[in-house]
Design a binder for these strands. Structure first.
Lengths: 140, 140
DNA sequence: TCATACCCGAGGAAACTACTCGGGATTGCA
DNA sequence: TGCAATCCCGAGTAGTTTCCTCGGGTATGA
C-alpha cells in the first residue's frame, strides 16, 4: 500500500512546474536537480505526463516543460491514476468477471468503500492547494 | 494501488474461519477449497496470521485452524497491515529521515490525509460486519 | 552549424509476488 | 503401537514489476 517512487517523482515534478509557472520552460535537468530525482528517469516519467496532455514541451535549445493547465485544474488524483494506474483495491471493482463470486463476495463492499474514500481524497487536492500549503509551511 | 492476492487470500481465509467459528478446527485443505486458494500458499499465509496471534492452530490428525478472537474483534485493517505491510503512502510518514525535505514537503500533507482516511475505513470494518453483509446478500 | 534541449525504444539489475517442494513434528484413532 | 492426518517450516523458482541507464535520434535558438 505504498505509492511507487515513479508516482512520487511525477508529483514532485508537477509541483515543481507549478512553482515555476510563468518562469518559462523548465529543463529536465533543472527539475531533476531541485527535486532530487534521477534525470533520465524523470525524462521518462514526464514523457507520460506530456502524452496525456498535462504538460507542454518546448523542443530545442532553451526548451523545456511547462504545465498545460492551471495548478488549480490539476488534481493529485489525476496524477496518481496516470502514473500508478487506476486506484482500485481489487479487480472485481472494475471488472465483474475478475472474481467468480463477484455478486456475493462480502469483501467487495469493503473494497468499494475504500476505493471511494481514496478517490475522494486525492481528487480533492490540486497543485494549487499544495502551493498554498507550501506557503504556509514557509512562513514559519 | 491494488492489494496483493496474498492479502486478499488471507482476508478470505479469515472470513471463512469466521463463518465456521464453533464448527471445530478447519483444515487448510477445506479452507483452500472453499475459498479457491492454492493450498500450500494458503498454509504460508495462515502461518503469518498464527504467529501474530490472530488464529489458533490444533496440530495432528483432526487438527486445523480457528479464530483466536471473536469476529467482532478482528478488523480488516489489522489483516491488511499484517499481510500487506503498514498502510502508508510514503516512507516519510513513518520515518522522518526517509526524505530530506520531510519538514517542508507539501506532498507530505496529502499523504497524511490519505493515510488517515484509509486507516479509518479499514479499521472500522470487522469480520463481524462482513458476516452481516454476507447475510444480507444471501437474503436476496 | 552547433550546442542545447526534448524524444524514444531497448535493456538490465534488483526486488517482489505468487507460488511449489520436500521433509519434519504432532497427534487422534484403529 | 503404528499410521494416517495434519500442522510446521525453510528453501527454491518462475514470472512480473520497478527503477533505473544507454545510445542514439530530432528540433530549434543563437
Amino acid at each position: 500500500m505504498k505509492l511507487s517512487t515513479r508516482c512520487r517523482y511525477g508529483i514532485h515534478a508537477m509541483f515543481d512546474l507549478a512553482q515555476n509557472a510563468g518562469a518559462g520552460p523548465q529543463t529536465i535537468r533543472a527539475i531533476a536537480e531541485r527535486q532530487l530525482v534521477p534525470e533520465q528517469y524523470l525524462e521518462q516519467i514526464i514523457g507520460v505526463l506530456r502524452r496525456e496532455g498535462l504538460v507542454k514541451s518546448v523542443r530545442g535549445a532553451q526548451g523545456g516543460y511547462m504545465l498545460a493547465w492551471e495548478p488549480s485544474e490539476i488534481s493529485i488524483g489525476q496524477l496518481i491514476r496516470l502514473l500508478e494506474g487506476p486506484v482500485v483495491m481489487a479487480d472485481c471493482i472494475v471488472d465483474a468477471d475478475a472474481c467468480v463470486r463477484s455478486g456475493q463476495c462480502p469483501s467487495r463492499l469493503v473494497w468499494e468503500r475504500l476505493t471511494d474514500c481514496i478517490n475522494k481524497v486525492v481528487d480533492s487536492v490540486t497543485l494549487q492547494d499544495m502551493l498554498a500549503d507550501q506557503e504556509r509551511l514557509m512562513e514559519r
